[in-house]
Amino acid sequence: MADVAMNVNGEAVRAELPDNTLLVDFLRETLGLTGTHVGCETSQCGACVVHLDGEAIKSCSVLAASVAGRAVTTIEGLADGDALHPMQAAFNAHHGLQCGFCTPGMIMAGVDMVRRYRASGEALDEAAIRHELEGNICRCTGYHNIVRAIDAAAKAM
């Protein structure tokens, strides 16, 4: 067992966990933050993407104990009260979802890529968005509206 403390969505959390507890299970089962989904358990699909100290990671392949002391943001922590984050608003407005199962991971990946490209000064054009989404699978939408949503959000962020 490990005593794990970290900051999740701005709040300090702490729990006794078996050493092999995955971050995604800690979030979903211990904290009840079920907006982070599990699609493959093997870091292929991107449904479980959260931010670790502001950077996108796949929470199905990270041990909770290994990120002790760090800050995690999940989809539940993205909006500012009732005001949606521009990426969330864009997915809503541009029909960037159908079943919605991939959506939290897509949004977290989208926010991360916009921030990274902004920081590096590179242009996040359509080709770059597609390339960046290589690790996020959507089985429903055909991606068209997801790319549009990220593109629109990048302009609004």
Partner: peptide
């Protein structure tokens, strides 16, 4: 449910 989906709810 779009709003629920984008907020993880």
């Amino acid at each position: 449910a779009a709003r629920l989906h984008v907020t993880g709810a």
